[in-house]
Amino acid sequence: MSLTSFTAAISIGNLISRLPSGVSQGIIWGIMALGVYVTFRLLDIADLSVDGTFTTGAAVTVMLTLAGVPSWAATLAAIVAGLAAGCITGLLHTKLGIPAILAGILVQFALYTVNLRIMGMAANKSINPDQFRLVLTMRNVPVAILVGGVIALVVILLMYWYFGTEQGSAIRATGSSPQMSRALGINTGTMKIIGLALSNGLVALAGGLMAQYQGYSDINMGRGAIVIGLAAVIIGEGIFDAIFRKGANFIAKLAFVILGGILYYIIMIIILWLKLDPNDLKLFTALIVAIFLAVPYIKKMTGESFGKAGKLSLKWLKNKTQD
């Protein structure tokens, strides 16, 4: 490609026209990221089952809609499926003593088969927005943004309420100090199961919405969901910290996770707009997440390094012998 045709192809107008679609997908991934937030930040567990439950949510929604169930009811059923899958991860972890990260991997692995079965052993299933009334679809992006935004808002309000209640506080306490929680009479095993279930319920909801938005469910659509969710959480928190400095309230934190999802998608659109190969996106996402995850550690380490201390000590010893 010559330089002139390249610059012509990456016109600003082209970028702007793609933004709304990025925002709508970003909101959906933001809802998924709220689920990741529950386990990763509140329970202090990296739950990998979400890669499977995202697809489960999509598969359940599509198949039920195809079977004639109203799409909103199908979406609610997807949440229930996610809750159940999360419960299984929780049970494997708390009742059978399997480390949380492995329990998540096992469930994710098993869900591949389950998801295929749900979709009648087909790798993908499409729903035609002309045939079915869907909750949201990419055919009408402004409405999709509106509906997605309202759903995100409801989820945020529900989370704010629940994690402020005695039970929700007990879940946060379990993530913060399990020993203290037990000493205060909190059944930490049960709290972990509830947290994992809620998290996967949200992820399945996002999967169901995504399937409707794009018009199909695909057996691989959840691959790497955990990384995208983490990216949204981390980007959202990074901006949150930059703006508020000190800790502000929980509702704002959750809203910034959605914002993180949107920003992640806009970054992806810019990369595509720059005509980079979409197949490179995963590497790029992993890089972004690795960098953001490393920032707190690097911040802590700047100014304190063994290399620096070693050099300084040599200088000091040298000066001392000269004295």
Binding site: Y162, G164, T165, E166, Q167, G168, S169, A170, R172, A173, M180, S181, L184, G185, I186
Partner: peptide, 19 residues
Amino acid sequence: ENLALAYRRGQKRTLRWGI
């Protein structure tokens, strides 16, 4: 919040507001 958790030591954790 820590004190509120301790104030409910040994009680059932309900869906009432935590503090």
